[in-house]
């Protein structure tokens, strides 16, 4: 048996025993994510297709699967979905700008050495591919942050329905910022885990700080870490605003609609 299949079986058993039905769903969603990435890469092999557009579509599918399949389709997940997509749009523009500006598109010298036997000129835009990589590294964390802000805001609204839009927004910001450190840690440590080999190499070869700060392979990683950090910060105000807007606009419509909203929440 291969290492991967044994680990997958162990994870499957643990998820279904500890997580029950939701655990099984989470495992299924993980399989969906694997296939989304593979399909996205297959489409990217066509030089006519823009990697960024493909990634944007993939992000929609990924965050749809994470939110709606695991947490069910309801008001809260719909807002989280909207907030995730809105944040990703802003983030994509920022990421692409910085990838172009710091010129970290494409492979680094270190990677090219390893891929020496392969041909590179197929017209696939590798600057956009690097942007796609950074977007996809962040999508999981942004989605998670969105749902973690929406849920407590609904809970707070349930306890006090007289809050103004501004008050709701501020409490959403507080909730989101409390989660900031831990969300950033989750993501950053995962990056460090995969960059460890690279860091060891840099120490091994005795690189100077100026070499490190200019090396494409390293700067790609700095850009990934910094912009994913920006992503999980930006999603908080976007989500808090959308949730506050949604909660207060439903309330002001009519008595019957707010009655339904209250009933739905208390159900």
């Amino acid at each position: 048996m291969t290492t991967i299949s044994l680990l997958a079986i162990i994870l499957f058993i643990l998820m279904s025993v500890i997580g029950g039905k939701k655990g099984l769903l989470s495992f299924t969603v993980m399989l969906i994510h694997v296939s989304v990435i593979i399909v996205a890469v297959l489409i990217m092999t066509d030089p006519a297709a823009s990697p960024i557009i493909i990634t944007l579509l993939a992000s929609v599918v990924i965050s749809y699967a994470t939110l709606f399949l695991i947490n069910g389709k309801n008001e809260k997940t719909k807002i989280s979905f909207l907030a995730t997509i809105a944040t990703m749009m802003v983030l994509i523009a920022m990421i692409h700008f910085f990838v172009l500006w710091t010129r970290v598109g494409g492979f680094s010298t270190e990677e090219v050495e390893e891929l020496a036997i392969y041909s590179f000129y197929f017209g696939v835009n590798f600057t956009e591919v690097i942007t796609s990589v950074i977007i996809l590294s962040t999508i999981g964390a942004v989605t998670d942050e969105a749902i973690s802000v929406v849920s407590p805001m609904y809970e707070l609204y349930r306890h006090n329905q007289n809050q103004s839009k501004k008050e709701l927004f501020m409490s959403g910001m507080r909730v989101g910022m409390d989660l900031l450190s831990t969300s950033a840690n989750t993501l950053f440590f995962a990056f460090f885990g995969s960059y460890l080999a690279l860091l060891v190499r840099f120490f091994d070869m005795g690189y100077q700080i100026s070499e490190v700060l200019n090396a494409k392979v390293f700067v790609q990683e700095i850009v990934t870490i910094l912009l994913s950090g920006v992503g999980i910060v930006l999603v908080v105000p976007v989500t808090a605003y959308l949730t506050a807007y949604r909660l207060t606009s439903t309330r002001s419509k009519s008595d019957t609609s707010s009655y339904h909203l209250v009933r739905r929440i208390f159900k």
Binding site: M15, I18, G19, K22, G23, L25, S26, V29, M30, H33, V34, I37, A40, V41, L42, M44, T45, I62, T66, I70, N71, F107, E111, L115, Y118, S119, F120, F122, V124, F126, V129, I130, S132, V133, I134, L136, S137, T138, I139, G140, A141, T143, D144, I147, S183, T186, L187, A190, F191, G193, S194
Partner: peptide, 26 residues
């Protein structure tokens, strides 16, 4: 459980896309 595994999954997997592409293109 689901969102946490999703976060680490994407942080790890997305880095493989460029080399995967080169293999497939060849």
């Amino acid at each position: 459980m689901g969102t946490m595994t999703t976060i680490v999954f994407f942080a790890y997997i997305s880095g493989t896309i460029p080399t995967l592409l080169i293999y497939l293109l060849n």
